[in-house]
Design a protein around this nucleic acid. Sequence first.
RNA 1: GGACGGGUGGGUGAGUGGCUAAAACCAGCAGACUGUAAAUCUGCCGCUCCUUGCGGGCUACGGAGGUUCGAAUCCUCCCCCGUCCA
Length: 378
Amino acid sequence: MNFSFEVKKTDATGARRGRLATPHGQIETPAFMPVGTTATIKALTHEALEELGTSILLANTYHLYLRPGHELIRKLGGLHQFMSWQRAILTDSGGYQVFSLSALRKVTDEGVTFRSHLDGSEHLLTPEKAVEVQLALGSDIAMVLDECIETPAPREKAEAALVRTTRWAKQARQHFLANENLYPGVSQWQFGIVQGATFADLRRESARQLLDLDFSGYAVGGLAVGEPHSITCGMTGEVTALLPADRPRYLMGVGKPEQLADYVALGIDMMDCVLPTRAARHACLYTSEGRVLIKNARYASDTRPIDPQCSCSVCKRYTRAYLRHLFAAGEITASILATHHNIHFYLDIMRQIREAIEFGNLAKFSAEMQACYVAGPA
RNA sequence: GGACGGGUGGGUGAGUGGCUAAAACCAGCAGACUGUAAAUCUGCCGCUCCUUGCGGGCUACGGAGGUUCGAAUCCUCCCCCGUCCA
């Protein structure tokens, strides 16, 4: 096994400073993972991602299964070789698409039947199928298929999704353990996903049930999908309190810049979010002084960099006025530069968080982030 | 000189008697985005008043008159623009 996870230090808040080793490199934790659903971080080259210090990124089972197809990717040497990315990859299972593509799918105990958003064709994604697709992709970390529901949700619905998620997790775990060595050269970790919506007892129950299955790591799913941040934190805390200390914990789909440290303080080791990349394409830039909506008229002749405190290559070279112009003109370069900056900003936050844990001042760092995001940019 | 066609809100451009402060798109202004159906989506976009309401007043479809209860829409004259013919 080429995998290991080690917690090197835990601070007073409960934050963990660790290291996750994979066959495709080491990941310093807490880590933020940029989202590359269709095997690309939109608007960024792999050269740029490497320069930014990305150690792991996400890709998506449902999307890659539909296009170009996991069999093709397998045939071409697996996802790493296909996309020419030799660092780590985590693949999401398609569970999130149960939520985001709710209009195009039907969930039964057997699995999720999707009507393809690409061509309308029907596809049944079962827990076993999700395992098979991810093994074929050869990602480093595979997620079990779960049922992600919106919050707030009625208790009965949350219970039903929890029961189904646990059942699917058992099937997925079994199927994984029986097939993990199916492809030579592919070595993979499998994570379970805790559900339970906004009900603390359901969250705890979900976690306990998954612990029996002995996953390599545990994710908290179904959060930041409508509920307030305080609830997200509350639910996360309920779960991390029960998770084994020696396994990585992954809070799925979060968060805003000023929220990241909160999750880390709750004992989270890994996070991912489309926010920095999507917001970038939508002209929202994250800075040490808060958000900069770069299309605003006030930046038309602003010759400062996006973030005067930032050391990224975009901030070293370009002005706000130029970025604003690129967005106004609909130039593709606008997305490229904005995404580069935002990913740098997120990865830099994580660097600062890791450092803060080591120096024991995470709470202070968190407070400073909150302050500038409440105050907004100068 | 003649024959047609046309002049609509910042732009393009619908609208041929009342449902029209006037479609749609663009531009402009502002906002949203949390395991990506997102280079997307939403709101505002003539001026003004207030008790901010599917509220009131004013101005507006080249110009000036006219018909009509009512005109961007019909009539008259004028001014521009385009195409074609001399």
